[in-house]
Amino acid sequence: MRPATGDAALQVRAATAADLAAIAALDTGARAAAHRARFPDTPFDAPAEHARRHDAWSRVLDRDDTAALCAARHGTVVGAASYRHHDDQHRPAVMLHQLHVDPGHWGTGIGRALHTACLRAWRTAGCSRAVLDVRWHNHRARAFYAGLGWRPDPDRRPAPDATHLTLTLDLATAPVPPLPAP
């Protein structure tokens, strides 16, 4: 699938086991870059963190109930997302568990292309609502999601010492960019 960004070199597709090492590496790098501003002396991209991210994505790719997408530019994996369907107050809903972009590609439309692919899949599956948790201090991610229409979930207010904020998106009203012309 070509993304709505008009970038013919970018492809968003189902992630496979062959993408595991690349996805784990970009996830580790993205997490490290996001956390470095808050905790500059913590080695978030240490070998142990690479191993944790590799194991986590291995489990995601092995699950039948979790979808995983990756974005590749010129054949190189530069972004990934995963989500799982669930019932939310007896309505079909979806939980976006992860959406990561290699920090060297931040601001280039990769995240938006992954998000658009997710929106299309969610609507096709008949979901009416999407939710996600974002780290409270990750202002870059919070701004990204706010720009796409995500709002704080009024039913899940964070505790005063919370590290995460739950966001929600009404899939009936969320705009989905059109597919680019071939």
Results as ranks from 00 to 15, higher is better:
Met1Val: 03
Arg2Tyr: 00
Arg2His: 10
Pro3Cys: 14
Gly6Cys: 09
Gly6Asp: 09
Asp7Gly: 11
Asp7Cys: 07
Ala8Gly: 02
Ala9Pro: 02
Ala9Met: 13
Leu10Asn: 11
Leu10Thr: 05
Leu10Gln: 13
Gln11Trp: 06
Gln11Tyr: 04
Arg13Ile: 09
Ala17Lys: 07
Ala18Arg: 13
Ala18Pro: 04
Ala21Cys: 00
Ile23Asn: 12
Ala24Phe: 03
Ala25Met: 01
Ala25Glu: 08
Ala25Trp: 00
Gly29Ile: 01
Arg31Glu: 15
Ala32Met: 01
Ala33Asn: 05
His35Ser: 10
Asp41Ala: 12
Asp41His: 12
Pro43Met: 04
Phe44Lys: 06
Phe44Ala: 04
Phe44Trp: 12
Asp45Trp: 02
Ala46Val: 03
Ala46Glu: 02
Pro47Thr: 01
Glu49Ser: 07
Glu49Phe: 04
Ala51Val: 15
Ala56Asp: 09
Trp57Val: 14
Ser58Cys: 14
Val60Ile: 10
Val60Met: 11
Val60Ala: 12
Arg63Asn: 12
Arg63Glu: 11
Asp64Arg: 13
Asp65Thr: 15
Thr66Tyr: 06
Thr66Cys: 13
Ala68Ile: 14
Ala68Cys: 10
Leu69Ser: 07
Ala71Gln: 08
Ala72Asn: 02
Arg73Leu: 15
Arg73His: 06
Thr76Ile: 12
Val77Phe: 06
Val78Asn: 10
Val78Lys: 04
Val78Pro: 07
Gly79Ser: 08
Ala80Trp: 09
Ala80Cys: 07
Ala80Phe: 05
Ala81His: 04
Ala81Cys: 04
Tyr83Asn: 05
Tyr83Arg: 03
His86Asp: 05
His86Gly: 08
Asp87Asn: 11
Asp88Cys: 12
His90Asp: 11
Ala93Cys: 14
Val94Pro: 14
Val94Phe: 06
Met95Thr: 14
Leu96Cys: 03
His97Tyr: 10
His97Trp: 07
His97Glu: 15
His97Arg: 14
His97Phe: 09
Gln98Met: 09
Leu99Phe: 02
Pro103Trp: 11
Gly104Ala: 08
His105Thr: 06
Trp106Ser: 10
Gly107Glu: 13
Thr108Pro: 13
Ala113His: 05
Ala113Leu: 06
Thr116Pro: 08
Thr116Lys: 12
Ala117Tyr: 01
Cys118Thr: 05
Leu119Tyr: 00
Leu119Trp: 01
Ala121Val: 09
Arg123Lys: 00
Thr124Cys: 02
Ala125Ile: 13
Ala125Arg: 10
Ser128Cys: 10
Arg129Val: 11
Val131Ser: 13
Leu132Ile: 03
Leu132Gln: 07
Val134Met: 08
Val134Gln: 11
His137Cys: 06
His139Asn: 08
Arg142Gln: 06
Ala143Gly: 05
Phe144Asn: 00
Leu148His: 08
Leu148Glu: 09
Trp150Thr: 00
Arg151Asn: 07
Pro154Lys: 07
Pro154Asn: 03
Asp155Cys: 04
Arg156Trp: 05
Arg156Asn: 09
Ala159Gln: 13
Ala159Thr: 14
Pro160Gly: 07
Asp161Ser: 00
Ala162Trp: 08
Ala162Val: 10
Ala162Pro: 05
Leu165Asp: 14
Thr166Cys: 12
Thr166Val: 15
Leu167Glu: 11
Asp170Ala: 05
Asp170Pro: 02
Leu171Gly: 14
Val176Thr: 01
Val176His: 00
Val176Ala: 03
Ala181Glu: 03
